[in-house]
Design a protein around this nucleic acid. Sequence first.
DNA 1: AATTCCTTCAACCGCTCCCTT
DNA 2: GAAGGGAGCGGTTGAAGGAAT
Length: 300
Amino acid sequence: MGRIPCCEKDNVKRGQWTPEEDNKLSSYIAQYGTRNWRLIPKNAGLQRCGKSCRLRWTNYLRPDLNHSQFTADEEHAIVKLHSVVGNRWSLIAAQLPGRTDNDVKNHWNTKIKKKLSGMGIDPVTHKPFSHLMAEIATTLAPPQVANLAEAALGCFKDEMFHLLTKKRIDFQLQQPGAAAYLNDNSAADFNSTKQEAKNDIINRIRPWDPEGATSASFGFPASLSGFHCGASSFGNEADGSPWSQCSGSPCPGGDEQGRLLKDDKRERCQGKQIRHGSNIYNSDSVLWDLPSDDLMNPVV
DNA sequence: AATTCCTTCAACCGCTCCCTT
DNA sequence: GAAGGGAGCGGTTGAAGGAAT
């Protein structure tokens, strides 16, 4: 049996919202709340799909949103969180007051990914490209290695990134660091309930103090932290070269199948509490502790 | 000044989750 | 336990504006 559409496509407006529509939606929600998204457009006099209204509200109209530029600390937090939870944008956004999953996702795709790539770090696995190349090479026969090297030398960073990420899935399962990570998580992912798996990840995200200046460090479990986090200028605006000195040993590119954040409304409430009362990152810590050569000799 | 290319980000789509009946 | 349906997530798209040629 097919699902009924969330709205009648023929009668709904799409595309950019007008200020009038924004006003209608905002004033309706201010008065009646967001109880039933399907009914909201109808009751508010909008020719929009309920989904579209929800998106507009959550990503743009909500009064607690922060529309300013991402700060270095926020970028730092996003990278750290991404290294633990992967593309779970809602979970990451929940740790950044005033930011939406869409904001975080867009910022990751347009800025952070490029910065990492430019630093010679694979944004998917959070490992240096040179490490990835070495790992790939161990799984290939010599002629294939030669071909790979040739291909690598002939590609720009983005193409390299694409090439390597396509390979990643296969070799990742074989390399020790990721194996340890997967072992830790596979139990949670496959042998325990989804709730437990979710809690496992939630527990990796240490509360942080939004007022800043907290000494709470980001809590990578030892088993998963291939990182050695030392002092860093990651995102340091003072030196005018943010992201300039990241270094690191292998990082777990932890990413599991399935949903995490969407678990239930109770958790959403918790998420909001976390959002307003904690801070998962410490701007004085660092993600990578790479030999500088790894960054000075990008694999291009 | 005109055109092309690139970047950004708001919005959409398809899917899954999970609550209710 | 199964089905229906609302809500939310992550991936993708495309319009708009800016930069480069």
